[in-house]
Simulated assay, not measured.
Amino acid sequence: MPEVTINMAAGRTDEQKAAIMRDITTAIATHAGVDPENIVIQINEAPLAHKMKGGKTFVERKAAQGK
């Protein structure tokens, strides 16, 4: 049973996350020949203040971009 874990910064809607998980399920089923019923996808979200890239938290990065 394939299991995929996705780590991402928080901020996407439930609809966006469901679409991501559906697309990944389809890709695994298609390319690995696995029944979709046997594929598990999990999304782990981190608050923007708990995730860092390039020495800046995602909150700092967002503020620097003016968003």
Rank of each mutant, 00 (worst) to 15 (best):
M1W: 07
P2E: 02
P2L: 00
P2C: 00
E3I: 09
V4E: 02
T5Y: 11
T5P: 06
I6Q: 04
I6K: 00
I6D: 08
I6W: 02
N7K: 10
N7W: 08
N7H: 12
N7F: 09
M8H: 06
M8D: 03
A9D: 03
A9C: 13
A10W: 03
A10I: 07
A10D: 04
G11H: 08
G11N: 07
R12Y: 03
R12Q: 04
T13W: 05
T13E: 07
T13Y: 06
D14L: 15
D14Y: 12
D14N: 15
D14R: 15
E15D: 15
E15V: 14
E15Q: 14
E15A: 15
Q16H: 00
Q16N: 01
Q16C: 01
K17D: 01
K17M: 11
K17T: 05
A18P: 05
A18R: 15
A19K: 09
I20R: 03
M21F: 13
M21S: 11
M21N: 05
M21T: 13
R22I: 02
R22C: 00
D23Q: 08
D23Y: 02
T25D: 03
T25K: 06
T26G: 14
A27E: 12
A27C: 13
I28G: 02
I28H: 03
I28W: 03
I28Q: 02
A29Y: 11
A29I: 11
T30Y: 02
T30V: 09
H31I: 13
H31D: 13
A32T: 09
G33F: 13
D35H: 12
P36L: 04
P36H: 05
E37T: 09
E37W: 02
E37Y: 04
E37M: 06
E37L: 07
N38Y: 12
N38D: 14
N38F: 12
V40S: 10
I41R: 01
I41S: 01
I41W: 00
Q42V: 12
Q42T: 10
I43R: 00
N44M: 09
N44L: 10
E45I: 02
E45Q: 08
E45N: 05
A46P: 07
A46I: 10
L48C: 11
L48W: 09
L48H: 10
H50K: 08
H50T: 07
K51A: 14
K51I: 15
K51V: 15
M52F: 05
M52V: 11
M52I: 10
M52D: 02
M52A: 09
M52K: 04
K53S: 14
K53W: 11
K53G: 10
G54Y: 06
G54N: 13
G55W: 01
K56S: 14
T57S: 09
T57Q: 03
F58I: 15
F58V: 15
F58S: 08
V59Y: 01
V59T: 06
V59W: 01
V59R: 00
E60Q: 06
E60A: 04
E60F: 01
R61H: 00
R61Y: 00
A63L: 13
A63P: 08
A64T: 09
A64N: 11
A64L: 14
A64Y: 10
Q65G: 12
G66N: 10
G66R: 11
K67T: 14
K67F: 13
K67P: 07
